[in-house]
């Protein structure tokens, strides 16, 4: 940990810029008491906080975008996705403008576009699936098509147009989603949802899912390793039965963990709501961002060529 200041207030939750791994960032954390002679390495181990997932590499960094209220960002980026999806595919240049705007946001946020590009490959399977289907796209008005030997079906211009439409829109939208989670820690996002009156059952579900995702995922990894070490050969059906039993025991472990978690929470005063240290509030920068963002968005949307 590259710490820029003295930790004179051990055990108190506080903020300061620091880095573990690649990115300098800022989030609430505390340090456990460390003796004077403790080496830096020990300091690192006593730094307590939560960011666990690889996709969260940038979510705790600091930038003008990171400092915005979660609600501002969520609404803006969802609006951007809606605009992208609603744009007629024929107007290719508009997608160029969207891409430029998204790139600009990435730069302001200090998130490398390559990070977004790498993670955006997730849309690929669905695009390939659609690619297979467009071979069969009937397109009667334009019979000149690349026939593959089927009588009724061939790659058509209509099909290519459809694929282009889906490809560009899904890719730009995924880039936007990645920007949202790379600039907004998930707990803040959920708090924002709560403030815009998403039912509390759902926001609680989101919070707990987020918290226990990694716990249970690593449990599954352990089980998979155990299985791979012991269960080889055998029939396909037998393997499926093994998975079934793994799911069963994972369920029991999850259930019992949930009961323990609930007991621990009740002991600490849980009353059905989640309390957070920071109460989000709109600031002047949210107003400025909203005006600039929606101004730009409407120019891209409605500007005539």
């Amino acid at each position: 940990m590259d710490s820029q200041h003295e930790h004179d207030h051990d055990d108190e939750i506080h903020f300061h810029d620091h880095a573990h791994g690649a990115v300098t960032h800022r989030h609430a954390h505390y340090h456990q008491h460390v003796h004077e002679e403790a080496a830096d390495k020990e300091l690192q181990e006593t730094h307590r906080h939560t960011h666990t997932y690889s996709f969260e590499l940038y979510s705790h960094a600091d930038s003008p975008i990171h400092r915005l209220d979660a609600r501002t960002k969520t609404i803006a980026l969802v609006a951007l996705i809606m605009a992208i999806v609603l744009t007629p595919a024929a107007e290719v240049w508009r997608f160029g403008l969207y891409f430029t705007a998204i790139t600009l946001l990435y730069i302001i946020a200090g998130v490398p576009l390559t990070f977004g590009a790498k993670r955006s490959l997730i849309v690929l399977p669905f695009v390939l699936f659609a690619g297979v289907l467009l071979v069969f796209m009937p397109d009667k008005p334009h019979p000149e098509a690349y026939n593959l030997g089927f009588e009724r079906y061939a790659i058509t211009h209509g099909g290519l147009y459809t694929l282009f439409n889906a490809l560009i829109k899904s890719w730009l939208s995924v880039l936007t989603t990645i920007l949202l989670y790379s600039t907004t820690p998930f707990p803040k996002f959920v708090k924002g949802l709560e403030l815009i009156r998403v039912p509390q059952v759902l926001t609680m579900l989101f919070s707990f899912l987020y918290r226990f995702m990694s716990v249970l995922t690593s449990e599954v990894k352990t089980m998979l390793r155990a299985r791979d070490a012991r269960a080889f050969g055998g029939s396909r059906i037998w393997h499926l039965k093994i998975i079934g039993q793994m799911v069963g025991s994972l369920f029991i472990r999850s259930y019992e963990r949930a009961e323990r978690v609930y007991a621990a929470m009740s002991a600490r005063g849980y009353d059905g709501t989640i309390k957070t240290l920071e109460v989000p509030a709109f600031a002047m920068r949210d107003v400025v961002f909203t005006v600039l963002f929606f101004g730009t968005l409407s120019i891209i949307l409605f500007w005539r060529l």
């Binding site: 059952v201 609680m204 579900l205 989101f206 919070s207 707990f208 899912l209 918290r211 226990f212 995702m213 716990v215 249970l216 995922t217 449990e219 599954v220 990894k221 998979l224 396909r236 393997h239 499926l240 998975i243 793994m246 799911v247 994972l250 369920f251 999850s254 259930y255 963990r257 949930a258 009961e259 978690v261 609930y262 929470m265 009740s266 059905g272």
Partner: peptide, 26 residues
Amino acid sequence: ELEEKDPPLMGVLAAFIFAAQMLNFP
């Protein structure tokens, strides 16, 4: 149907479904 203990329970079970989706088969 919900009792006070249910939101944490459902959240952990959502994480359970999420984790179980990692189990893939040929």
